[in-house]
Amino acid sequence: MRILHTSDWHIGRTFHGSSTLTALRGVLDALVAEVRTRAVDVVLVAGDVFDSATPAADCYTLLTDTLAALRDTGARVVVTSGNHDSAARLGFQAKLLRNGIHVLTDPAAIATPITIADEHGPVHFYGIPYLEPVLVRRLWPGVRTQAQALTRAMDLVRTDAAVRGGRFVAAAHCFAAGVEATPHLERDIQQGGLDVVPRAAFDGPDYVALGHIHGRSVLSERVRYAGAPLHYSFGERDKPRGAWLVEMDAEGLAEVQWIDLPVPRRLVQLTGSLDELLTDPRFIPDEDAWVSARYTDTVAQSDPMRRLQQRFVHCAEVRHTPAVRAAADTRTFTARVEAAGADDARLIDAFLAHVRNGQGASDDESDLVREVIGERVGAEAAV
C-alpha cells in the first residue's frame, strides 16, 4: 500500500497581506498529479486544512475541488482537523462526502478506524483531530494538557488496534518533543511546555503522520511531520515543500521517501544598503521573488518599501538593520539635552543623534540648522 502524508494546507492564509489561494491551488494540483502518477492508495491530511475557523466561500471551493480530484485518482482520502480548523465546520458535511473521502473530527470516534485493505490484508487508519484539553475533558476526566489528551487518544488507538490485529496508521496534529518550530509561525499550542507531546506517546503504529510544524521533520523512521505545501513565512524560506510517500508491505512500514512539490515563488532575504538593494546587479535574479529586505544604512531612509517595490514588485517586508550601531547610552533624553548645553544647534544635534542610531547632524544639516536659527534670532530681534 502506498500512502501520501501531507498536512497544514492552511487554505485561506495570507502572506503579508497577499492571498495565497491561487498559489496553493497550483501546488495542490501538483500534489494530485503525484498521487496519480505514483498510484497512491491513501492520502492522509494531518490537520490545519483551513487557516481560520471561519473560512471564506472560495476556501471551501478549493478544498472541495482538491478532495474530488484526489478521489478521482482512485486514492482514498483521510482528513483530520488541526488547531486552526473549526472541527465542526470542517466535519459538518462528512456524511455527505463522496465514498472514499473521510473527514475525521470527532474525538469520541478516535478508536473507530477507517479500514482499507491491500493484497496483504487490512490497514487501519486512526484519525486524531486536534485535542483541546478543555473540550475533551468531558470525555476523559482528569485530562488537563494536550500531552495528556494525545497520550489518552493513542492508548485508545493501541487498544483497539490490538483487538483488530494487523497493520495500523495514526494521524495527529500536535507539537511533539524534539521537533524544531519556525519562530513566530506555528500558532502556540503549548503552555509552559506542558503540552509538548512525548515521542513515546506514538509508540505502536506502523506509521504516524503528524501535522502542525510547517517544515518537514523526522522524529523517527515511522514518526514524521510533512510540513506545509507553501512557504507561509520568510523564516521557512529554506525549508523544502513536499510530502512523504510511505510504502507498506505485509510486515508494516517498508520505505519512506520525500516528494518535492513546486514552489510558486521563491522567498529570499536580501541585505545591503538601500542604494545597493536598488541598484546592485547581483540582486537581478531576485527581482521576481518574494523579498524580505534588510537595509543597513546607519540612518533610516524615507519610504523604503515604495522605493524597493519599484525594483522588487513582490517586496513584502523591509527592516532597518544598521550595520554599525552606536554604543548603548543609558542616559535619558533629558540628561542628554542637559549635557549638550544651552546652544540650540547642539540641542538639535543631540536630538538627531538620539533618534538616528548615534549619528548627529551632517555638515550640510549643521549649516542649515545654524542658518534657520540665525534667521529666527534675527526675526525676534526685529520685533
Rank of each mutant, 00 (worst) to 15 (best):
Arg98Gly: 12
Val246Ile: 13
Val318Ala: 11
Arg266Thr: 02
Thr321Tyr: 07
Phe333Pro: 07
Leu245Trp: 12
Asn357Gly: 05
Val246Cys: 15
Gly204Ser: 06
Gln269Arg: 15
Pro205Ala: 09
Ala339Ile: 09
Val77Thr: 02
Arg144Ser: 14
Gly26Glu: 10
Arg216Thr: 01
Trp290Gly: 02
Ala87Gln: 14
Arg265Lys: 02
Trp244Tyr: 15
Gln257Phe: 04
Arg376Ala: 12
His10Phe: 00
Val77His: 04
Ala326Cys: 07
Leu96His: 10
Val197Gly: 15
Ala254Val: 01
Glu119Asp: 12
Asp303Phe: 05
Asp85Val: 04
Gln146Tyr: 06
Ala53Thr: 10
Gly215Ala: 06
Phe125Pro: 05
Asp65Thr: 11
Leu63Gln: 05
His184Tyr: 02
Arg152Ile: 00
Ala250Ser: 15
Ser19Ala: 14
Pro141Asp: 13
Ala201Arg: 08
Asn83Gly: 13
Ser19Gly: 15
Glu371Leu: 09
Ile110His: 05
Gly127Val: 03
Gly193Ser: 07
Ala250Ile: 04
His212Gly: 05
Arg311His: 14
Ala161Gln: 09
His173Arg: 09
Gly211Leu: 04
Ala226His: 15
Leu308Pro: 05
Asp8Glu: 10
Leu28Ile: 14
Leu24Tyr: 07
Asp344Cys: 11
Tyr130Gly: 05
Ala335Asp: 15
Val263Thr: 12
Tyr126Asp: 10
Val35Ala: 08
Val369His: 06
Thr182Gln: 15
Trp258Pro: 01
Asp297Ala: 07
Phe234Lys: 14
Leu31Cys: 11
Leu230Lys: 08
Cys59Val: 08
Val268Trp: 03
Glu180Gln: 13
Ala30Cys: 07
Arg152Thr: 02
Val163Arg: 12
Asp249Trp: 01
Val45Phe: 03
Thr6Lys: 04
Pro229Thr: 13
Trp290Leu: 03
Thr80Tyr: 04
Ala327Ser: 09
Ala328Asn: 01
Pro304Ile: 02
Leu253Gln: 14
Arg331Tyr: 00
Ala170Ser: 14
Asp155Val: 08
Leu245Ile: 07
Gly91Glu: 12
Ala339Glu: 12
Arg137Gly: 15
Gln191His: 12
